[in-house]
Design a protein around this nucleic acid. Structure first.
Lengths: 217, 217
DNA sequence: CTAATTATTTACAAAATTGATACAAATATA
DNA sequence: TATATTTGTATCAATTTTGTAAATAATTAG
């Protein structure tokens, strides 16, 4: 999970960013001036810093010099739009630059880009010779790529993340279908079938009578 | 042992939850407003938080933001049932959501689910060379895995959890079959039989004349 | 010790669950 | 819009589990 530090003195803007990023699944913290920022950065390793240029007690450029040696990616956030500023920012090691006001979607895209560039973490789950690239939704068994449908994919991820656990149909349904399970439906069973068939998991993805299914190590 | 913090300003409800959860074996503490809650959370690491949305001195959503970085699972408890609220809750990191009024049984189920998801502790019971992995529903005796049916499984769990206690047929029936015992049926006996056979418990799982059965240490 | 009661064993049929197949509805894609 | 893909349901077969009945064995109380 990524942790983002928001350094921005205008509270409404900061709060707005905070909420939006949290909604996207990022962990966020907010600070409102340069000193607080420095403290926070020393105390914890952030994945990314969003940095406003105009700040009380140390401006963004100064802070940038402070951050740079730590090799944390930084996106500048500012009302200043001059080319000189941009150049200065990039020279100091900024990874991106966003001019206020901006659409939150744009910020999201930039964050994702920066994080991908920086961390290149394709989350990959594996089970025996099956590997699941969660980010790209690609599944391979051995060398071969096996296309899975959405539900099959979610099922597989669920089971691999819960190896050896007997999962109740109810749990499965609520996780994969994301809504309440109203007893007695064969839907889960059917999809288990299909998953077994596509990945030849007949002996591994076993039924637990009266309970549900389990993926065996 | 799990510790649950109940953040709920309506004392009767809070007390009721407290009593019920204690009866289920959880450790519980109660606070009645946001500030108290924050203090408690800072002071001690809870396993799970039950959080009412409408609170004096900081509402549940605010509190949620405070809790989230600590990665403590949260179940929202509220009279508010709007979809927006639910979405908001989940986005802020709630693990589940329960709308008042609710059955205590439902709360129990949700708590168990969340705790299992979060702590993924394989609950393992043992008796001599038999081990019962409750999470995966697997039973081994020595090195060998012994498949049990659901009723047998429940029976075994019941007896291991009540070693050396003579259990009345009635009790057994009501625990395992989850419905009222209407006198004189050989059903329990039959299943005891099958369990004995599968796990070779003839000398340990003994009959108590006129009463029921007991698993001896 | 013996009759009466209670538990165990065996056998079997009923009930419930899961697997397989086929198909229609819903959804996505060209 | 037409086409393909995905998804959910219905159906039936296969399997497993479960409950009961009847016969047998064991235990208890008198």
């Amino acid at each position: 999970m990524y942790n983002i530090l928001i350094i921005e003195d205008e509270k409404p803007i900061s709060d707005f960013i905070n909420l939006s990023l949290r909604a996207m699944g990022y962990g966020c913290e907010q600070v409102y001036d340069g000193e607080e920022a420095a403290d926070k950065i020393l105390e914890k390793r952030y994945s990314l810093i969003l940095l406003d240029i105009m700040l009380p007690k140390a401006n963004g450029f100064e802070l940038m010099e402070f951050i740079r040696p730590m090799e944390i990616p930084v996106i500048f956030l500012t009302a200043k739009a001059s080319v000189q500023d941009k150049v200065k920012g990039f020279k100091l090691g900024a990874d991106d630059y966003l001019t206020k006001p901006f659409q939150i979607e744009e910020l999201q895209v930039r964050i994702e880009n920066v994080l991908r560039r920086y961390y290149k973490t394709d989350e990959i789950l594996t089970y025996k010779d099956i590997s699941v690239n969660v980010s790209s939704h690609k599944i391979t068994k051995g060398e071969k790529e096996i296309p899975l449908t959405e539900k099959e994919f979610k099922l597989l991820v669920l089971f691999i993340s819960n190896k050896n656990l007997a999962l109740f149909r109810e749990q499965i349904y609520e996780k994969v279908w994301d809504r309440e399970y109203i007893g007695d439906s064969r839907t889960v069973d059917m999809h288990i079938q299909r998953l077994r068939k596509k990945l030849d998991l007949y002996d591994q993805l076993v039924s637990v009578f009266k309970v549900g299914y389990r993926l065996e190590e």
